[in-house]
Nucleic acid binder design. Structure first.
Lengths: 247, 247
DNA sequence: ATTCCCAATTGATCTCGGTCAAAGTACCAG
DNA sequence: CTGGTACTTTGACCGAGATCAATTGGGAAT
């Protein structure tokens, strides 16, 4: 159970986590070394994993739980700039300090490597460097996709976009494909959703109620979501039914 | 005159462009090969350099002029997701197609390399791969910084943020430092600014007028800007006077 | 059960920025 | 000088989403 996909594959049967990061199970020769320097860290919901501006001496990936990257202005306005789901990579090889806060949204377990040995490993393993570039490009695409959401979409479209992303990500986990209804639990509070979408929590709540009334989604309790028709949701999100990757 | 900074330095006296990309003047041994495969392309203002979704068979950097990365929804709403100033790198090693439109905002000259040989060069030159990762991380930081602008800042703060970025970038070009007044020409129309900031052009115009009235900036004509006090502008932008890199 | 606490919903009102419309300005070609 | 075009400014009005405030709902602990 460590990290993968610094190699080409996107799944490793041996690992309980779907990793998009680095996995030591495959390509044993080069990556066995990673096994030796890995360690686990646990965080409680609400805890700050890394403070913006602090020195950051490890890289790693999320094993379980949800973490978020957030930026905060002096007056308290906050914007979430990324969502870290299990298998997502955290860290910036070659950088000293963290550029944003990383917070545990739920209880989180991370698999970490001290940065120094990881960077040495990177230097001697071109595949890892290459894979890391690809992962960073993915994140960049996701961030830019989200700029469109933040800058130009309506509140309703924003909610639909977020649900769509979580649903798609979830579907890929369960290998369910995207036909038929999709069911999942929202991993975020209304407030966290608001911070991600550049809205207030009241607006988030209202729009979710509206989508429910219009049967775009079904809710059981506050968090358990059913999406009867994924295509419908993506129309609501203003997506042309294929774009919209993100996180 | 080519590209640099796949190496450590951030400036090369021989080159008329400040490059943050790849420059063949330094580290001649490895990079001379780049000289052989480089070529120039010119574009007129308004021209689309690359269409979203099209195959992209080159990488390169802007030599002169301004280009923009934009995403457009079916109904025409557009969001600029990046601004390319001289020396900025364009391209995605390892990716087949372009994820957004690249448009020439002014007349643009680019220095290009066919992707295939560039990627081969990358594979055999770890420094280049490393530098490319660092550049991509910079872009990622910039994109996430901009997410805060788009999601949480007021119209006035957005304008101030944009001016601040252009001013800072411009100051670094002229090695002027950031003391004393800063003078530059806006390289964007009001509409382009609006697309970058997630506003309408009318709001952009109004807020610029307001900043002018409050003597945060001075305007001669429509485009020539003087910033008497950079600190003041950054306060207006809501920045804590050091963050806010971008572009 | 009762209480407490926190997340979420819902309502009433306000406001910033969008929309629609009309001028104003600079630049170019003839 | 004149007309045309593209960019910009300014005004009047409107509405989506923010703000303020009250209420509801659902666990967990007592």
């Amino acid at each position: 159970m460590t990290l993968k996909a610094l190699y080409e594959h996107t799944n490793c049967e041996e690992c309980p986590i779907r990793h998009r990061a680095v996995c030591a199970h495959c390509e044993k020769d080069e990556l066995e070394a990673l096994e030796k320097i890995k360690y686990y860290r646990s965080f409680e919901a609400g805890q700050t994993i890394i403070w913006s501006g602090d020195p950051m001496n490890f890289v790693g990936s999320v094993v379980s739980g949800i973490a978020s990257l957030t930026q905060t202005m002096e007056d308290g306005r906050t914007q979430m700039v990324g969502l870290l789901l299990p298998s997502d990579f955290v860290g910036r090889p070659g950088r000293e300090t963290a550029p944003y806060d990383v917070q545990a949204t739920t209880d989180v377990v991370m698999c970490c490597f001290r940065k120094k040995p990881f960077e040495e490993m990177m230097a001697s393993t071109p595949h890892i460097a290459h894979r890391l570039l690809q992962m960073t490009l993915d994140e960049l695409d996701a961030a830019r996709e989200w700029m469109l959401v933040l800058g130009r979409k309506t509140a309703r479209e924003k909610i639909a976009s977020l649900l769509s992303i979580i649903a798609r990500r979830d579907a890929s986990v369960n290998k369910t494909g995207i036909t038929g209804p999709i069911v999942f639990d929202l991993p975020l509070t209304r407030e966290a959703m608001a911070d991600y979408l550049g809205l207030t929590l009241e607006t988030v709540s209202r729009q979710i109620s509206a989508l429910k009334k219009d049967t775009v989604i079904t809710l059981e309790g506050k968090r358990h979501v059913t999406i009867p028709d994924m295509g419908r949701l993506m129309e609501e999100a203003g997506d042309d039914a294929d774009g919209g990757f993100l996180v």
